[in-house]
Simulated assay, not measured.
Amino acid sequence: MLPLAALLVIWQLVGSAGSPYLPPPSTWWTAVRGLHAQGSLLPAVVVTIETFAMALTAAIVLGSAVGLAIGAAPRVRRAAGPLLEFCRAMPPPAVVPVAVLLIGFGQTVAVVVVVFTAMWPIVLNTAEAVRSLHPVLLESNRSLHLPVGVRLRKVYAPAVLPGILLGVRVAAPVCVIVTLLVEMLTAADGIGMLLLQAQRNFVSAQAFALLAVVGSFGFLVNAGVVLVERRVMRSWPPRGADL
């Protein structure tokens, strides 16, 4: 944080309020207040947060399920491997036009594109966590004829959760980035659209102010994910505990 604060202070001291390209940070606050007075800032922030939250939740659920299926079933892994690699390598801007053709404009297409992009780290980390289970533990699991619920709770869950959390740490920033990208490409409501409008109208102060808002949101998201991961893992049993 110290280098960033020093950069902003230097920028403020040497910058000019009349600069059309690099307005000083003091003008950003004025730009944010102007957007808020117009009634456009708060609704855009709410839409972006809603899209991000829904997409991240869906990515966690879908990515965990797919990763568990791939990691636990070698046949599924071999059959779905090439398709998953093809989908994972597809860039988000290339997905947006097809998603718009199939779904149309609106928040739904943004959620679908973000989920499609952000779920792969969770899928891969979850599958690898399941595959890393010790063969002796799996054989003991079969020999004891444990019920499905006990297997999930005492064998698979302790192995899968660290992988899911690691995947979420990677997927959360991706969700933020792709959410803004889709809002720009589809002209949907949100911070991305406001940022694009500021760029098109050459309102530099608004563009930098919205960029600061986006950066702060990404910082808070990452800090929240790290905090949740630490608290969960502190109380989570080790792999195979209480089997």
Rank of each mutant, 00 (worst) to 15 (best):
V170P: 15
P158Q: 08
A58C: 10
G71E: 03
M1F: 15
W120V: 07
G71K: 01
L227K: 11
W236K: 11
G106H: 10
W28S: 03
L220Q: 12
A172V: 04
V9W: 10
N125I: 06
Q38H: 09
A205R: 07
A99C: 14
L41I: 05
R77A: 09
L124A: 08
R169M: 12
M119L: 13
L144A: 06
L41Y: 01
C175D: 14
A89V: 12
T179F: 15
V109E: 02
V109L: 01
T27V: 01
S26E: 15
R231K: 13
S132Q: 05
V76H: 00
L35V: 11
W29S: 11
I103S: 03
P3R: 10
S204W: 04
Q197L: 12
F105S: 08
A55Q: 02
F208W: 14
P162R: 04
M54V: 09
L84V: 14
V221H: 04
V178F: 09
V214M: 08
L56Y: 01
V115Q: 06
I103Y: 02
V100N: 03
A127N: 02
V170W: 07
L35Q: 02
V113H: 01
L124C: 07
A58Y: 12
G149Q: 13
A73C: 13
A94Q: 14
V95H: 05
H145D: 13
G71I: 00
G18F: 11
P173M: 10
T126M: 01
A209L: 06
T57P: 01
A110C: 03
V98C: 10
E85R: 03
R75K: 10
M233D: 01
P162W: 14
D189N: 14
A205F: 13
